[in-house]
C-alpha cells in the first residue's frame, strides 16, 4: 500500500514535469554566440520570427492603399485591419496620450499590440511541438516565456522615461514622479515607493503576460493528464470536450492579454506625458 502510494506520487511528479516540459522553451536549436553573448536560436525565437514575418507581411498588404492614397476607402481585409488599428487608436492611444501624441507613440503601441496578439495566437497552433531538441516538446507560446515578455516590458520601461523626458525634459521627468506640495517627511516614504513603482510596473507587465499565456497550456495539459494517470481512454472524451472549451477561452485570453499589455504600457507612457501630481 505504502509502496503503491510512493509510486503514485512519483507518477504525479513526472506528469508535472511533463507539463512544464510542454510549456518550456526548447534547448538550443542553433548555437550562436556574438561577443560573449549567447544569442542561440531556440523554439521561441523561431516563433517570434514567424510571428514578426507574418505580421509584417499581413500589415504591409493591408496598409498598401494607405501609402498610395490620401483618403483611402478601405474594403475587405484592409477594412477589417483598419478596424483593429482604429480600435487601438481610439480605445488606447487617444484616451491615454491625447490626439497630439497619438501619431508619435502610435507605431510603438500598435507594434506591441499586433506582435503580442500574433505571438499569442501562434501559441494556440500546436504544430510547434515538433520544433525541439530534448526539452520543450510542447506547443508552447513565445509570449508565455518571461524572457520574451521582460524584453517587451523593458521597452515599455524605457519608453516611459523617453516619453517623460521628451515632454518635460530629462530632469523634469524625474521631478514629475514625486508630488511637489507634500511635507518633506512624506517624501522620505514617497520617493522609495515611486522608485519601487517604476520597476514594479514593467515587472507586473512581464509576469502577467507570461503567466497568462502559460496558464492556458498548463490547464489544458492538466485536463489531459487524467487519461494517462488513470490509463483509461474514455476519460479522454471529457478531457477533449473541456479542452475545446478552454481553446475558445484561450482565443479570448490571447486578445485580452495583448490588449492589457498594450493598454497598461500606454497608460504608463501617458502618465509620464501628463503627470497627475
Amino acid at each position: 500500500m505504502a509502496g503503491h502510494g510512493a509510486q503514485e506520487v512519483e507518477h504525479t511528479l513526472s506528469i508535472g514535469d511533463k507539463i512544464i516540459g510542454h510549456i518550456a522553451n526548447s534547448g538550443v536549436l542553433i548555437p550562436l554566440h556574438i561577443g560573449g553573448f549567447d544569442i542561440s536560436i531556440t523554439k521561441h525565437v523561431v516563433m517570434l520570427w514567424i510571428s514578426a514575418a507574418l505580421l509584417i507581411t499581413v500589415a504591409l498588404k493591408a496598409s498598401s492603399r494607405y501609402r498610395k492614397s490620401e483618403l483611402p476607402i478601405p474594403t475587405g481585409f484592409s477594412n477589417a485591419f483598419e478596424y483593429v488599428v482604429d480600435f487601438v487608436r481610439t480605445g488606447i492611444l487617444i484616451p491615454n496620450l491625447g490626439p497630439k501624441h497619438a501619431l508619435t507613440w502610435g507605431p510603438l503601441v500598435l507594434s506591441f499590440f499586433f506582435l503580442i496578439v500574433t505571438m499569442n495566437f501562434l501559441g494556440l497552433i500546436p504544430i510547434f511541438s515538433y520544433l525541439h531538441d530534448v526539452h520543450g516538446h510542447g506547443g508552447s507560446t513565445a509570449t508565455g516565456n518571461f524572457n520574451l515578455t521582460v524584453a517587451l516590458a523593458i521597452i515599455t520601461f524605457l519608453s516611459i522615461i523617453i516619453a517623460g523626458s521628451k515632454e518635460h525634459g530629462f530632469m523634469g521627468h524625474w521631478k514629475n514622479m514625486v508630488p511637489g506640495n507634500v511635507p518633506k517627511p512624506v517624501l522620505l516614504i514617497l520617493i522609495p515607493i515611486e522608485i519601487l513603482g517604476m520597476f514594479v510596473r514593467p515587472f507586473a507587465l512581464t509576469m502577467r503576460l507570461a503567466a497568462n499565456m502559460s496558464a492556458g497550456h498548463i490547464a489544458m495539459l492538466a485536463i489531459f493528464a487524467p487519461i494517462f494517470l488513470l490509463h483509461n481512454v474514455y476519460v479522454g472524451i471529457g478531457s477533449v470536450a473541456m479542452n475545446v472549451g478552454i481553446t475558445f477561452l484561450e482565443i479570448i485570453v490571447c486578445i485580452v492579454q495583448a490588449y492589457v499589455f498594450t493598454l497598461l504600457s500606454t497608460v504608463f507612457i501617458g502618465q509620464a506625458i501628463h503627470p497627475h501630481h
Binding site: I39, T42, L48, N145, N147, I154
Partner: peptide, 9 residues
C-alpha cells in the same frame, strides 16, 4: 535566456 531577450528586442 539572454538570446531570446536579444532577439525580442
Amino acid at each position: 535566456d539572454t538570446g531570446l531577450m536579444f532577439w525580442t528586442w
